Computed example of a mutant assay.
Amino acid sequence: MQKARGVGVIYLSLLLALILTVTPMPAMVQLFRPDWVLLVLLYWVLALPYRANIGMAFVLGFLVDVLVGTVLGVNALAFSVVTFVVASNYLKIRNFSILQQALLIGLLLAFYHLMIFWLSHFLTGVYFLPDYLWPVLTGTLAWPWIFWLLRRVRRQFKIS
């Protein structure tokens, strides 16, 4: 019962992140939207790497592709690669301070966005605009708050 509730809370947080990803926003604010799904997924990979893994990252990336309307598989591949990096180093990353984690998450978000651009350029011929990197800044700034909120949820529901 406890285990099922924990998995339900993880899936509910990821569903909320998916909803935040497709929530309509004004065009000016749209540029700054953090990558909610990736941030929440990275928290769960750091906190519970045996529950949130690369397979979950691939499925969530595919769902983001479908919901946002990008080429199928682009986000799935990028989510999987970034999740692999975090999952293979989760013990080291856990020991970082929250500021160090935010900086590392910022680097991973930059890597994610550059990978998305590279794949999109290869497949559809889009050109790079500096505006592509605004979510990196907002995601880096949002990480401490997401970390604090999800840690509180994890402790309140005793998810392990």
Rank of each mutant, 00 (worst) to 15 (best):
G61V: 02
D65S: 07
R51I: 08
L48W: 08
L41H: 07
L38W: 10
R33Y: 00
L41F: 09
L42F: 07
L67M: 02
D35K: 14
Q30T: 03
L14D: 02
L60Q: 01
P49V: 09
A27W: 03
I19Y: 07
L12P: 09
L15S: 15
M56T: 11
A57R: 01
T21Q: 08
A52D: 05
Y43P: 02
L16R: 03
L12V: 14
L60D: 00
P26H: 11
V9I: 12
Q30K: 08
R51C: 08
A47D: 11
R51W: 09
I54H: 02
Y11Q: 09
V22R: 04
P26A: 13
L42M: 15
L42K: 15
F32K: 02
D35H: 14
I10W: 01
L16D: 02
L46C: 03
L38V: 03
L60I: 04
R33W: 03
A27C: 03
V37A: 01
V59W: 09
V7R: 12
F62E: 08
V40I: 06
F58T: 14
V45E: 14
D35R: 13
P34M: 01
L18H: 09
Y50E: 15
W44K: 04
R5A: 14
T21P: 04
Y43G: 04
P26Q: 15
L48I: 00
R5E: 15
V45H: 11
L14I: 07
V66S: 08
Q30L: 05
Y43V: 06
L20R: 04
L63G: 06
V22N: 05
N53D: 12
I19C: 04
V7M: 14
L20V: 06
D65I: 12
G8S: 03
M56R: 07
I54T: 05
V22A: 07
L41V: 01
F58A: 15
L60H: 04
F58M: 15
D35E: 14
L14M: 04
V37N: 00
P24R: 05
G6Y: 01
M56Q: 10
L12N: 08
R5M: 15
